[in-house]
């Protein structure tokens, strides 16, 4: 019964391929046109159906018994195509914000708003990265590869690292200003933080370096105290929190899958 469908969706030879691709594009455009004209009341059920079917695939693949002879169930062979589908779809979200960027900064430049030159810099940087980034792979020009290296390794990565490193200044200032032993909780937090901080830097380790490596007194070495805090108290406390998060996460996943989730995004009129 499914054989003609499978044959239709099989790989095609080069001589007929353009027709199939063009047909798929035309069909998709037609479907988009149909979707655009879909009545409002049918939209949410359609989204719910798409979400449910996507979730059903992985849920069924997990719950459905596996044939011991083949170590598979009827969905196992579709995991690879599903991963490619997910990668292609997920990858297409990478550039979702670009149109907004172009619109906002294009407007800044066209109206010569304050700081318009920054918008020019942004667009020049973007175009340069795209041009040389693609030439790096598809071109054979060594100069282009060097420019890409300057843009990626030289500029992008260093700026990314710098942006994050700025937090170091703020964390010093914030620790100094906000860390006050106003309560038992704050005192416990500070004492633990100090012990962990001492335990993870060599200068802290040096403080108790005179204690023996083994035996009862070894437990008092600062790195061992830190290790005990992390592996006994911290691990148990975070495991308890993780149990709560896990159950909550599962409940939310179930609600999303069945389109029962509420909130601004899910309840908005469409």
């Amino acid at each position: 019964m499914f054989e003609p469908i499978a044959r239709f969706f099989s790989a095609k030879p080069p001589e007929v391929l353009p027709y199939y691709v063009a047909g798929a594009v035309l069909f998709s455009i037609l479907m988009i046109f149909v979707l655009i004209n879909l009545p409002s009341r049918a939209r949410k059920p359609l989204i719910a159906l798409v979400t449910f079917l996507a979730g059903l695939f992985y849920a069924t693949e997990f719950f459905f018994p596996i044939d011991r002879a083949t170590n598979k169930n009827f969905l196992t062979d579709y995991l690879v195509p599903a991963s490619k589908l997910g990668s292609l779809l997920g990858g297409m979200t990478l550039t979702l914000g670009i149109l907004s960027l172009l619109r906002v900064h294009g407007r800044n430049i066209a109206r010569l708003r304050a700081g318009w030159y920054n918008s020019v810099a942004l667009l020049v940087a973007m175009v340069s990265m795209v041009t040389f980034g693609l030439m790096d792979k598809y071109g054979a020009n060594d100069g282009a590869k060097k420019v890409f290296n300057v843009l990626f390794e030289g500029m992008l990565i260093n700026m990314d690292a710098t942006m994050f490193s700025l937090i170091a200044f703020y964390i010093v200032s914030a620790s100094y200003r906000a860390f006050r032993i106003r309560s038992i909780e704050a005192t416990i937090l500070m004492v633990t933080a100090f012990l962990v901080m001492l335990g993870q830097v060599p200068v802290g380790n040096a403080l108790t370096d005179w204690l023996p490596q083994d035996g009862t007194f070894a437990s008092l070495r600062v790195e061992n105290i830190k290790q005990w805090i992390l592996s006994q108290v911290n691990a148990a406390a975070l495991r308890a929190i993780a149990f709560g998060l896990g159950v909550g996460g599962l409940a939310i996943s179930l609600r999303i899958w069945l389109s029962l989730e509420r909130g601004a995004y899910f309840e908005k009129e469409i």
């Binding site: 992985y58 995991l79 690879v80 599903a82 997910g86 990668s87």
Partner: peptide
């Protein structure tokens, strides 16, 4: 590079 970690992991377990 592969986006959407879950689908890739499910797939690599099998193939």
């Amino acid at each position: 590079f592969r986006p959407v970690a879950g689908v890739v992991m499910k797939s690599l377990v099998r193939d």
